[in-house]
Design a protein around this nucleic acid. Structure first.
Length: 295
DNA sequence: AAGCCTCGCAACCGCTTTTAC
DNA sequence: TGTAAAAGCGGTTGCGAGGCT
């Protein structure tokens, strides 16, 4: 026997997500954390399949996602990583922790493909890179990953405090959602009705955070008529970090904990896409791209 | 101003791999 | 251990926004 089915196929809603649905999903994940997607539609009342919920979360609502223009450095990393790895967007995305594979894929298809096409006519950067340096890249990638893993295991064996790592590597994307919701709230007098469970989750989570006293409402917080959302969005504290911040997070987790910046015990602990295994190579690959004078 | 076209992106689809039962 | 669902992934599509005529 296998597992029970994830969700009913009948009555599943498709198409763009509404802010209401986003709130429900975020509320639920804020309380329960990501994962166990099968239970999300039933527990939240969302008429979405679990797969859709997961995708919405990973591609849009997930904390730490940076949206908008790609920097020149990001662009170059994508170009070179694509040359190295091919269309393995998830692998490429692991070197750009703030970007989703979908985002990178879209950016590649809409911008970089054309750009490279034009660029190739002029200087043949991509092809020459592929033919001349690919082997070198692969060797260095393997070496660096090996070194990174070794360093990681050494570090972990030195301090056996695994709980410190996972709480700091993720920034909230409440900024994304609050931006998204700002417009919605302008036109919506009352917060949308949530399922009892979701509403409770939101209340509980908000209380948990405000009780800690370390979270203040961001500049994006809502008018007083939506006070309930203030605390809901207050986990912005962990969001809106620059790429440098994210890169730094992997190495500064201990320092943050030591400095009393550890997130509250009951605050949301999001799954971390840029885990240590990913982040160390990220820094290395950035370094060697710079070393190579590619930037 | 209206209609058409292009572009960008969110979301879906379908396949593969992983995992729970 | 086999089976089936979950999870992961890359390709593709559909729609809205903006630009152009």
């Amino acid at each position: 026997m296998g597992r029970p089915p994830c969700c009913e196929k009948m009555g599943v809603k498709k198409g763009p997500w509404t802010p209401e649905e986003d709130i429900i999903l975020v509320s639920y994940i804020q309380e329960h954390g990501p994962g166990n997607w099968r239970s999300v539609p039933t527990n939240t009342g969302l008429l979405r399949c679990s797969k859709s919920c997961r995708l919405r979360w990973t591609n849009y609502l997930r904390p730490g996602i940076k949206r908008g223009n790609f920097t020149e450095q990001e662009e170059k990393m994508i170009v070179h990583l694509q040359a190295l790895l091919g269309n393995r967007w998830a692998a490429i995305a692991s070197y750009l922790p703030q970007r989703t594979d979908n985002d990178i894929k879209n950016y590649w298809n809409t911008h970089l493909k054309k750009k490279l096409k034009n660029g190739q006519k002029q200087d043949g950067v991509s092809s020459s890179f592929q033919s001349v340096t690919k082997g070198r890249w692969e060797r260095r990638l393997q070496t660096d990953i090996r070194m990174a893993k070794q360093a990681l295991s050494e570090a972990l064996s030195l301090d056996k405090q695994p709980s410190q790592v996972k709480t700091t590597s993720y920034a909230s994307s409440a900024g994304n959602i609050s931006r998204l919701l700002e417009n919605w709230m302008k036109t919506t007098p009352e917060p949308p009705p949530l399922t009892a469970g979701a509403a409770d989750h939101r209340t509980n989570s908000a209380e948990t955070m405000t009780d800690q006293g370390s979270f203040s409402s961001s500049a994006e917080t809502t008018p007083s008529t939506h006070q309930g959302f203030d605390s809901f969005f207050s986990f912005n504290h962990w969001s809106c970090k620059s790429s440098d911040d994210v890169s730094r997070e992997s190495v500064s987790a201990e320092q943050q904990n030591a400095g009393g910046l550890t997130p509250p015990e009951n605050s949301v602990v999001f799954e971390s896409k840029p885990n240590l295994d990913d982040q160390v190579p990220l820094m290395l690959i950035e370094k060697w791209l710079l070393d190579d004078g590619l930037f």
